[in-house]
């Protein structure tokens, strides 16, 4: 693995975790009656940017290295479903996470006052952030399983 690919993998993981923490913080901030709009904007911005960064670095690693170097190793193990099911699922969920976080970013930045006054909008934003965090945790667990299946033996 080249230094560039190594960095792509490490940043994919780190930025994904930063995005998850930011979106989880966003949903926690939305609990109160009086909202801290400044921090809502910061968390939604950080969440979106980090997802985007994780998307680009993970995408590069996947497109240039995973298919030819990692996938055959996993398929040769006794648990090929880690690629055929988990990786395939992860790959598809991963595609739309930056878009979901972009929706959250747009809502927070364009309708800050409405979030406070409109209960339904606030509820929808909480649900959206819940969805992002839940999907994020699911693909994180899938990522851990994928990393755990890679050995030098094959």
């Amino acid at each position: 693995m080249t230094l560039l690919l190594l960095n792509a993998l490490v940043w994919h993981i780190l930025l994904g975790t930063i995005a998850l923490v930011a979106i989880a913080s966003l949903s926690l901030l939305l609990r109160g009656e009086v909202l801290n709009i400044k921090w809502l904007k910061i968390y939604s911005f950080v969440g979106f940017l980090a997802f985007l960064g994780s998307w680009i670095s993970g995408g590069y690693y996947y497109a240039t290295y995973y298919g030819k170097a990692v996938k055959p190793i996993i398929l040769a193990t006794s648990t090929p479903w880690i690629h055929t099911i988990l990786m395939e699922t992860k790959e598809h969920i991963f595609l739309f996470l930056p878009f979901l976080s972009f929706v959250a970013l747009i809502i927070v930045n364009l309708f800050p006052k409405e979030i406070e006054s409109n209960g339904k909008l606030k509820q929808s934003l909480i649900l959206l952030s819940f969805l992002i965090v839940t999907l994020g945790i699911v693909i994180t667990l899938a990522g851990i399983s994928i990393s755990g299946s890679v050995t030098k033996k094959f």
């Binding site: 993998l9 990393s147 755990g148």
Partner: peptide, 14 residues
């Protein structure tokens, strides 16, 4: 996790 992955520790640890 990153260190384990880069050192190919595999299923025994993960």
């Amino acid at each position: 996790l990153i260190l384990w992955r880069l050192n190919f520790l595999g299923p025994q640890v993960f």
